[in-house]
């Protein structure tokens, strides 16, 4: 199955955001649930092996968009038993215009045993755009071996690379490495990007408190922002204008708690 859903905002009257395009493509169904708020609703199982799904998001300058999902995405192997596994893919492309703000925080992607999945995110930010982008991957359903997945995330801000990261899941020799995921069964990250003080412009007003901004003087004499470290998570200030919250956990609930803790700290930086 090949599907491409499209979502685009436009500035509306009174500075509000209107949805200029909201084009569902089953199994990706889009539902508007409020001003500038859209839910992704999966109207079929999967993605399954062989599916090639895409979602294009265009957040027009000065507008605000909040994308969520109702339930987690369960990636399953293709229907043909016995045959070579077919790859499924999900590609999300998002452009966030000048002064615009995007929050993209769907529920986790669960890699069912036997799946072969590719996740691609291409995020292009105007220099003063703001983004809150959360991605969670769960290595198999409860008690199940993980399927295989390659996830690639590229964020470019103002034409300069901000974050490029790939996760490869499904090679037990690598997954269990104390250098990679250790004994974790889930990996998650949240990119919070934008100009300094970006927190204020995010659709979700962050809780305040707990902020610990600290600078350290490196050997080269540059001031660098230090990370904030928690149990199984870290808020990592990037070289560019953004912070990555990175977390590992044994289960999806713990992963979410860790990410949220890190996000709160990051938003207070």
């Amino acid at each position: 199955m090949t599907a491409r859903a499209v979502l685009a905002t436009a500035p509306g009257p009174g500075g509000r955001t209107v949805l200029a395009t909201m084009s569902s493509a089953p199994p990706i169904t889009l539902r508007r649930t409020g001003p500038g708020q859209v839910y992704l609703v999966s109207t079929a199982a999967g993605p399954l092996g062989g599916d090639d799904l895409a979602l294009d998001i265009d957040v027009a300058p000065g507008t605000v968009l909040d994308v969520r999902s109702v339930a987690s995405t369960l990636v399953l192997p293709g229907p043909g038993p016995g045959s070579a596994p077919e790859e499924s893919s999900m590609t999300v492309t998002a452009r966030v215009g000048a002064g615009a703000s995007l929050r993209f925080a769907p529920e986790p992607t669960v890699l069912a045993a036997g799946c072969l999945h590719r996740m691609t995110v291409r995020l292009e930010l105007a220099p003063d755009a703001r983004v809150f982008w959360r991605e969670e991957i769960v290595f198999g359903r409860y008690g199940e071996a993980s399927g295989r997945c390659r996830s690639r995330f590229d964020a470019v801000a103002g034409g300069l690379p901000l974050l490029r990261q790939e996760f490869t899941v499904g090679d037990p020799a690598i997954d269990a490495s104390p250098a990679v995921y250790g004994d974790a069964r889930c990996v998650g990250s949240t990119l919070i990007a934008g100009p300094p003080g970006a927190a204020a412009g995010h659709p979700q007003t962050p809780r305040t408190g707990g902020g610990r901004t600290s600078d350290s003087l490196s050997a080269g004499g540059r001031r660098t922002r230090e990370a904030i470290l928690g149990d199984g998570w870290a808020a990592l200030p990037l070289a560019g204008p953004g912070i990555l919250v990175s977390a590992l956990a044994l289960d999806a609930a713990e992963l979410r708690r860790r990410l949220e803790r890190g996000e709160t700290e990051a938003l207070s930086l």
Binding site: R152, D154, V156, G159, L160, P161, R164, Q165, E166, F167, T168, S177, P178, A179, V180, Y181, G182, A184, V187, S189, E226, A227, L229, G232, W233, A234, L236, S246, A247, L248
Partner: peptide, 27 residues
């Protein structure tokens, strides 16, 4: 840098979350 996409954009970018956490903990 060129304003267009970097020549090296497509290079592998494999991430190791545990190494990131270890590096920060070490510090």
């Amino acid at each position: 840098p060129a304003p267009t996409a970097s020549a090296w954009a497509e290079l592998p970018a494999h991430s190791a979350p545990a190494l990131d956490l270890l590096a920060e903990r070490h510090l």
